[in-house]
Design a protein around this nucleic acid. Structure first.
Lengths: 264, 264
DNA sequence: CCCGGCGATTTACGCTGTAAACAGAGGCAG
DNA sequence: CTGCCTCTGTTTACAGCGTAAATCGCCGGG
């Protein structure tokens, strides 16, 4: 049941030991131990994973924890901070992933590969949370989604600089890498979300999209099969490798990745 | 006043005739003409641009239009559909942009360049709306943000196929292009948003981010200047050109962009 | 024994989205 | 002109939201 989609995506939640899932935390109703910030955030993530983001309210989260809504306010100043905490907690799962390293022990490319797949694993494990990771306003302009954590920014920059990147190119790589991860993963989870969970609009019409007749879009109709293929894993891998190759060129040429001339 | 940031970003709202702005629509209070779906959506976009996304409520939008909230329900089934309409309207601005063409009259690269800059112009003109464009669940899995419109998907695929791309590589290009646009532009507007509008958290602390002492992050501290530079326009241009080059290789090799061997 | 404080609850308020009933302004038949 | 129908916006109402403030039960130290 829920067979491995196709050729076993190594980052999909089923295709793995579950290293990227939330803490055990005990089943929902049985959470009897007294409240605590970690427990609340864990329950919030669990609740969003199960019921979707806009189903999360203070009252319902309280109920899920066997407690009144106002009890949460002893540990969190308000709903916004709850969401911030959720984002932070989800990203912190990276820290416990044994396949992702804080230092580039086996070269910067290995480091970037592991980090990228770690983030992808998180995104796929919490597809309902990831849009939050992507869109919550960052603490500083240069703390970019989806990494959003000073620790990982520091780790990223150190890894590249230690590997020979200049400071400028390390920063440029950080930007390109963030953008790549954000775009790919946000698209992947939103695609996943629409495929499996018509949560917001319970009436899902597979044919005749949104009432528009597709007669005016013959190419779309003709390519619908191709368009519907899910090649997320391969696309991700390929784009990641392309990015790494670009960075390798930058590194070898030993300068900021602003193109020198290149004539074309 | 509000001088062109640096070297005049051609997509920034100030650096242009305003071709990507919403319809004139008359000043807020004076909107006396009877209601109508277009007018409502235009006012909603205007309201979000001015007051932020979560300040938009049916009641306030009604007031902004000089009408009670319930009047809006005669033209829209509910709030969700209002947001869908906002997204659709914003993307439809592309259709009125004279610099963006529906057909690849001057080659597919010109087409993709114009389209990309058109979308970027929209994102920068409506930074508060763009996260909505990025995260609203698409109507079908292959209607991807940020294009989100059958018409543009059709136009995109036709342009590439007419230029010699195979169907497979046109679809792959569509995916890569969406992902590139989404990642770059979402990052750019969220960065912009945090820089100019501390709307949600009115207390902006420029130093000492979120209470963390930066002592544990020496590299971040050392590179803060570099990290804070806003090179969005150049990054965008460079990443776009890189993508076009990749696609050109795909086109010349006349096959799906799945890498044949390439050994490394 | 009291008692102070801590963790959770109760109550309350203003705001939200929206269902349902209502009101008024044309247009048209008689 | 009168009566009615439709079309558009208002009024009223309700459940649910986030959260401020007051309250309550408990529990360890004088």
């Amino acid at each position: 049941m829920t067979e491995p989609d196709q050729s076993a995506d190594p980052d999909s939640p089923e295709g793995r030991g579950g290293a990227a899932s939330v803490m055990p935390a005990a089943p929902p109703g049985s959470g009897r131990g007294s409240l605590d910030r970690r427990r609340i955030l864990g329950a919030a993530i669990e609740y969003i994973d199960e019921n979707g983001l806009n189903a999360l309210t203070m009252r319902r989260l309280g109920a899920h924890l066997g407690v009144e809504a106002m009890a949460l306010y002893r540990y969190l100043p308000g709903r916004e901070q709850l969401l911030d905490g959720v984002v932070e907690s989800v990203i912190d799962e990276l820290y416990g992933d044994p396949d992702v390293h804080l230092a580039a022990a086996h070269g910067w490319q290995d480091y970037l590969q592991r980090l990228a797949h770690g983030v992808r694993r998180i995104a796929l494990a919490h597809p309902e949370v990831f849009p939050l990771v992507a869109t919550r306003p960052p603490a500083a302009p240069w703390v970019r989604p989806p990494l959003r954590s000073l620790r990982w920014v520091e780790s990223f920059l150190d890894a590249l600089i230690d590997s020979g990147f200049t400071e400028e190119s390390a920063v440029a790589a950080y930007r390109a890498y963030s953008s790549f991860l954000l775009g790919h993963l946000l698209l992947e989870v939103s695609q996943k979300g629409v495929k499996i969970s018509p949560r917001d609009e319970p009436e899902g019409v597979p044919e005749a999209i949104e009432g528009t007749d597709l007669g005016n879009y013959p190419t779309v109709v003709r390519l619908e099969g191709l368009l519907s293929l899910d090649e997320s894993a391969a696309e991700f891998e390929e784009a990641l490798e392309n990015l790494l190759e670009r960075l390798e060129v930058v590194l070898r040429e030993g300068r900021s990745p602003r193109r020198g001339d290149a004539r074309a």
